[in-house]
Design a protein around this nucleic acid. Structure first.
Lengths: 342, 342
DNA sequence: AAAAATCATGTAATCGATTACACGAAAGTA
DNA sequence: TACTTTCGTGTAATCGATTACATGATTTTT
């Protein structure tokens, strides 16, 4: 039925060559105005559609960009991807999604697949930082594919990144808890080989220090970002000789679990115990006991990553631009940490 | 530095032709075993990577599939996409994401872009059902690109779909509210030109009928899927002569808004008023007053859509297969509608 | 009017891989 | 030995668009 129409078909119909058709359609100034109009009209009439694959092969550019995330069904990553898509849509790029499910093997596979598919750029939030096997990353750089890290980044020369100031985020949240009168503040952290968790921890520590509060190793619990992990953490913390009176969690999910466990034990939040999380997941706002959390402006992070990509994509390959964008975190203070009720 | 290696480079090095190299790499049985091994070894040594774009041009298949959703940063759509990606990953397909933001213009643009990009299939949740301009859809079908609707579908011959039984979902939720003793059950609906909202409404109506409860037009409010919309709806409903004692909402967000507004007015949930939502968004489970909701198994829906695509993609184009998969909804009963507390 | 410049279009190579067809060499058959 | 298969590889077309270079037709310049 609807056979594919090529420029050769148009050329044949008009008794000219495909080269002329191509030039006419691309607004090449060397083409006679009359010819151009005729070609464009005929192309429309024949329902011609440019074959993007042929163009991609010829130009070496696919007009696709790849995005690699641990998983897509988290509000944070989905929002970043939304930002990327929205920013790139007007430029004609399509967004290819890959998930690693926190597997480094999968991450490497995805990197290779995307490079093989000739994407014009890759934006990713790294899954692990193990340095043993950087070959997939080196492959990307050797092929001159622009690479941009967002949120979770690795230290690689020539790679741009868009992150938030996690140190400041941790500092703000902790300082807020101190201001609310808490003096025994625990911290739920993640895998500190990842910068984001390391820096949130360091911000937490610095806030304690700046306010004359001793840092206690035993107050730091390493957990997964999951509700149950938060419950377990509270269980551990409450067995300490001096149990804490507040928690700053690097994860909203763990913060939620902590709150559930504290309620289970009839501990009054926020009066006896304050809790603050990180990421500003939608549910933190929706709860009756809304949860204080640090916002990472994921939409903006996505848009910014896309902009950094657009800046790099057309530059001459010789000049390597390495841009490090750091967004400001914003603390959303809510009920879970607001003692003074009027 | 890392120049692209092609089969011609390998051929030159081995003093054979590119055709032989191609055949060796594709395990063509006509190739001498010794040659095959030599080629494969040399290819690996030279770090050869097949150019997917060239392959795509030659074969007409891009190994990409397109997914079009209203927006990606909703747990439901993100989960469906996760399902699609996971199911298709082992088959070597990449997933391209497009958002419509509920704009039909955008939907049509996306359809055309994906077809032009020669995707091997399109999975989508339709944004609108206005029949005025079906040309984008017809274009997809004329080009023989497999098209699969999930969740929100349109009636188009030859198009498969994967949906849940929305009627049953509406019925289950409403029946449950009746069983809890509610007799004045209101319904928050969406744009009923979309089947999903129409069917949830019809299920609601049937459940009332089957249980001897009169259907009242004034109890049906058409809202957007948003927290504020739920608040406004409650405001309207409570002004009625006989205000309702329960709400079945087609949207979890509207249900949440309704609950917030009811609490604002010191109405006791669930004892004075019960609420049930739809979609089983994560927050419905996390709330202290957890919200009863109908689960749509989005992950399964995504996987199923991918499977339907895989079934269709290799069939001869002449035989059009139209498969309609209907998944069963599952009611998750939670605190917002459980009066009998033990 | 002859030479030079400009214009519009055609010719053919190119991007990288696949594959129908052709062909010479080796092996099998009569 | 002469004839037919079979085997392994080469030749060249193809997918569809772009573009450097060539060429013939106008137009401009002197």
């Amino acid at each position: 039925m609807s056979e594919k129409v090529t420029i050769y078909d148009i050329a044949e119909k008009l008794n000219i060559t495909a080269a002329t058709v191509s030039r006419a359609l691309n607004n090449n100034p060397k083409i006679k105005e009359a010819t151009r109009e005729l070609v464009i009209k005929t192309a429309a009439a024949m329902n011609y559609k440019q074959n993007k694959l042929a163009l991609a092969l010829k130009s070496g550019r696919s007009n696709n960009i790849g995005v690699i995330v641990p998983r897509i069904d988290s509000n944070f990553f989905a929002s970043v991807i939304r930002g990327i898509e929205e920013e790139l849509y007007p430029h004609g790029y399509q967004v290819i999604i890959c998930q690693t499910h926190e597997s480094i093997k999968r991450e490497n596979e995805n990197l290779h697949t995307l490079v093989d598919a000739q994407v014009d750029g890759i934006m990713m939030s790294v899954t692990g930082i193990s340095n043993e096997n950087d070959s997939a990353f080196r492959n990307v750089l050797e092929k001159n594919v622009p690479l941009i890290f967002f949120d979770r980044s690795k230290h690689i020369d020539g790679v741009s990144s868009v992150t938030i100031n996690d140190f400041k985020g941790g500092y703000l949240a902790t300082k807020h808890l101190i201001d609310e009168g808490c003096r025994h503040i625990a911290h739920l952290s993640g895998d500190q080989s990842l910068d984001i968790f390391k820096n949130r921890f360091l911000g937490y520590k610095q806030a304690l220090l700046d306010n004359g509060i001793d840092f206690k190793e035993e107050y730091v619990i390493y957990t997964k970002s999951a509700v149950d992990a938060g419950k377990e953490a509270v269980d551990k913390l409450l067995q300490l000789q001096t149990p804490p009176d507040a928690i700053f969690s690097s994860s909203d999910f763990a913060a939620l679990g902590a709150i559930q466990e504290l309620k289970e034990r009839n501990i009054d939040i926020p009066n006896e115990f304050c809790v603050a999380g990180f990421s500003n997941e939608p549910f933190t706002k929706f709860m009756e006991l809304s949860i204080t959390s640090v916002d990472q402006s994921p939409l903006e992070m996505g848009k910014m990553s896309a902009r950094v990509f657009l800046e790099q994509v057309d530059k001459t390959d010789t000049i390597k631009i390495e841009k490090k964008v750091v967004l400001a975190p914003e603390l959303h203070i809510r009920k879970s940490s607001t003692k003074t009720t009027f």
